[in-house]
Simulated scan of single mutants.
Amino acid sequence: MKQKYYIGFFMAVFFIASMLGIGYQMSYQYVMDRHEAEAQAKREERAPDRPKEEELVTTKGAAQKNEGYYLCELQGYVVVYLSDHETIYEMTEIPLDTLPENVRAEVEAGKYVETARELYGFLENYSS
Rank of each mutant, 00 (worst) to 15 (best):
S127P: 02
V113S: 07
I88S: 09
E53L: 13
F122K: 06
G61K: 09
H35W: 09
A109M: 10
I7S: 10
T98S: 04
E101W: 07
P48E: 01
Q3W: 13
M11H: 02
G8I: 13
A37V: 11
S127W: 05
Q75V: 03
R117N: 09
Q40C: 03
E106R: 15
T87D: 04
E101N: 07
E55Y: 06
P100R: 12
P48N: 04
A62V: 05
P95Y: 14
D97N: 08
A41E: 09
I16A: 13
V107H: 12
Q75N: 15
A17M: 03
A37Q: 14
L74V: 02
S128V: 00
T115D: 05
A63F: 01
T59C: 07
K65W: 02
D84N: 13
E53I: 08
I22Q: 06
A37L: 14
E124Y: 04
N125G: 00
Y126I: 01
R117D: 10
L82K: 03
H35Y: 10
D49M: 04
G68I: 03
V57A: 11
S83D: 03
E36G: 04
S27G: 03
D97M: 07
V107G: 07
Q75G: 09
E44H: 11
Y24P: 02
E124V: 04
G68R: 08
Y112F: 15
E86M: 04
E36R: 15
R34I: 01
V31C: 02
M32E: 13
L99F: 14
K60I: 05
V57Q: 12
G110W: 10
M11D: 00
A12M: 10
Y30E: 01
L20I: 12
K2D: 10
